[in-house]
Simulated assay, not measured.
Amino acid sequence: MKALSYLLLLFFMIASCSGNSSSQNLTWYNNSTITNIIEDPDKPEDFARVSIGISAQVFYISKKSTDYKTIMKKANQSFKKSKSFNIGIENKTNIIRQINEVK
């Protein structure tokens, strides 16, 4: 039984370390719709506050990001037209880094 536990532990360690580094350490919300976009009340010059889905989880779009216009365009499409996207959230920051078309 101990040997099986060690094998499982080894498997999980290998699986967790074999991630794709080009994903920028993102958590993906697939087939999601943005339900609200407002200026962040704490830092309106830096961020837009975005709510995703029925549970209204709050994330941010950085206005200083090089992809700000592209991300905001897709976010507005999702919000105004209820269009679903795959949304990539940077881990530990809650900042939206990618919004991709659903395939």
Rank of each mutant, 00 (worst) to 15 (best):
S22L: 11
F11M: 15
M72E: 09
V58R: 12
I34M: 02
R49D: 10
I61Q: 07
V50H: 01
L7Q: 13
W28N: 08
M13K: 05
S5P: 14
N100F: 00
D67L: 05
S16C: 12
F79A: 02
P44N: 06
I61D: 05
Y6V: 07
E101W: 09
K63G: 04
T70Y: 15
K83L: 05
K43Y: 12
G19H: 15
Q57C: 08
D40M: 08
N20E: 13
I61S: 11
Q77A: 01
K81H: 14
R97K: 05
F85E: 01
I37M: 09
D42F: 14
K69V: 07
I38D: 10
N86Y: 03
R49T: 06
P44C: 06
W28F: 14
E90G: 02
A3G: 06
Y29T: 00
T66P: 04
Q24A: 12
N30S: 10
C17S: 15
K73W: 12
A48K: 02
E39L: 06
I87F: 15
E39H: 08
F11D: 12
E90M: 01
E45N: 14
L8A: 15
P41Y: 15
S21W: 11
F12K: 12
K92S: 11
K2R: 07
K74H: 06
F47G: 04
S51L: 08
S55K: 00
E101K: 06
L9C: 07
M1P: 04
K2T: 11
A3P: 08
S65I: 02
I99A: 00
I34F: 04
N25K: 03
I34E: 05
I54S: 14
S55G: 02
T93F: 12
M72Y: 10
D46V: 06
K2E: 11
L26I: 07
K83H: 10
K2G: 13
S23W: 15
Q24S: 12
A75N: 05
I99R: 00
A3L: 10
S62L: 05
T35Q: 03
L10E: 08
I89H: 03
